[in-house]
Simulated scan of single mutants.
Amino acid sequence: MADDQEHIVPGVRTRIMHGGHAPSAFHGFVNPPVVRASTVLFPDTQTMRGNGQKYRYGLRGTPTTDALEAMLSELEGAHNTVLVPSGLAAVTLPLLAFLSAGDHLLVVDSVYSPTRQFAGSVLKRMGVETEYFHPSIGAEGLARLMRPTTRVVFLEAPGSNTFEMLDVRAMSDVAHAGNAVVMMDNTWATPLFFRPLEHGVDLSIHALTKYPGGHSDLMLGSVSATQESFGRLRETQMAIGINGAPDDTYLVIRGLKTMAVRLEHHQRAALQLAEWLEGMPGVARVLHPALPGFDGHALWKRQFSGASGLFSIVLAGGGDTEAAAFLDALRIFGLGYSWGGFESLAVYCNLADRTVAKAPSEGPVIRLQIGLEDPEDLQRDLEAGLAAVTALRQA
């Protein structure tokens, strides 16, 4: 019986609880130590000149960063993972690692806006040409855009703010046929609900600031890679000189222990509110991929095992004034950027920088982060926001 149990693969929640750190390796303490380090001493010059010592300098890793990298690699099904100081750094590092002057970059037009800003500034100065494609283009449409110089295809699913879906495997196959590397921002789903590397992606990107941290008190990002792509990623990380700070790294380790439990509430509450909002006057559309009426629902259902707490609504008419009236009437939802923490947030989405995937025409887009509050209280808060827009129009 004991031998049979040794061959059972533990569930993902069990692996989160026990991965990345062996208590026996550090006096039995269940959590890894927070190692704040720069200098590491060597016993002699021979060791210092060679590679006989695991830790050589704080920038190159510590027991704390090792623990989180191991946990994330296990969750992602990756060869290895690197940590960086923010989610945006997790986007920019792999782009810098795999792009050079004269290269062509294909990016889904519903991408996280700072990714677009990086492509239009730093990458442009480097001589990289960026081209955006509509998320509904499909594999055949993507194939028509591929060039001999296309080196990276950058995906995000669901899309930022408007939640468009992609066939990740089909697009990855097209990219690989053209000798391009595939990167995907997977922050919305986390590896609990989607594992990009199982769908052909080479590098899976996360803002650990969001659900893994879970408490709106840290900045950290990660890139989990296949064996073929990891070496170049790590080499670039060390050449630039960035790694995760020890305290933020530890906070993500702690946050991961409860992420599955938190996501269950985020998912349930968000879907409850999204379904209610679908029938509310003043709401033109609800942009949530888990809703059966959403355009990308079939793709979401086929590829993802769950949904997080982030979605958007499109108000029925109006613009900046109506969006402000809605947001200013909220009392529980905070007005703030980021998401994935314990608290509910709301923001007005400016989609003016898109090139082909234009903003919804019915009215302003309001993104909602559904936190861990009671959904009934959040519903009353949203009712107040919609009532404020109605009162504005009647004034």
Rank of each mutant, 00 (worst) to 15 (best):
E373P: 01
L123W: 08
D320H: 14
D377S: 12
S344G: 12
T390E: 15
A260M: 09
T209M: 09
P85L: 12
Q227G: 04
L299N: 01
E373I: 06
F154E: 00
V91Y: 09
A384V: 04
T321P: 01
D202S: 10
W300D: 00
A90C: 08
I313N: 02
A25C: 09
E383K: 13
L372W: 06
E373A: 15
C349D: 07
R254D: 13
L315D: 01
V30F: 09
L83G: 02
L142Y: 05
A78L: 07
W276Q: 06
M184H: 05
K210G: 01
E156V: 10
E69Y: 05
T130M: 14
A225C: 06
L251A: 15
I313Q: 01
T14R: 14
H134D: 14
V35K: 13
Y57Q: 11
L155E: 01
A269P: 00
H266G: 01
G340W: 11
A359L: 06
M165G: 00
D185G: 05
N186Q: 08
T149V: 04
S338Q: 12
F326P: 00
H288N: 15
S222I: 08
T190S: 15
L208W: 11
G221P: 04
A97Q: 06
H134P: 00
V108S: 07
L106V: 07
P63T: 12
G138C: 11
R56P: 02
F333E: 03
Q46V: 11
L299C: 03
G138L: 12
A37N: 15
E164H: 14
V12Q: 12
L392E: 09
G306Y: 12
G334K: 13
F154D: 02
L192W: 09
R195A: 00
F133Y: 15
G334Y: 07
T39S: 14
A180F: 12
F163A: 06
Y55E: 05
A180M: 12
P360S: 04
S222L: 10
Q237M: 12
A384R: 15
T321W: 05
D66Q: 12
A170Q: 11
R49D: 08
V252N: 03
Q379P: 00
A359P: 01
F29M: 14
L83H: 05
G293V: 09
S172P: 03
K210Q: 13
A316C: 05
A189K: 05
H265L: 08
I366P: 01
T39M: 14
P85R: 12
M126Y: 10
W339I: 00
G319N: 08
E76C: 09
R195F: 02
V389Q: 10
G306W: 13
A387S: 14
E76M: 08
L142Q: 02
A37F: 06
V108G: 01
N179S: 15
L277R: 04
R169A: 13
L378H: 07
T14A: 15
L218E: 03
G178T: 07
L218W: 04
V223K: 04
S305Q: 13
R331N: 11
P148E: 14
H265E: 09
A323L: 07
M184V: 03
H288F: 10
T39Y: 13
A284I: 10
K124P: 01
T130W: 05
G306M: 11
S113G: 08
W276P: 00
Y57S: 08
H206Q: 11
A270P: 03
R125Y: 14
A189Y: 13
R116D: 03
V182A: 10
R169C: 03
F194H: 09
I16Q: 04
L88H: 10
R195V: 02
M238T: 10
Y348L: 06
T321G: 09
E362W: 08
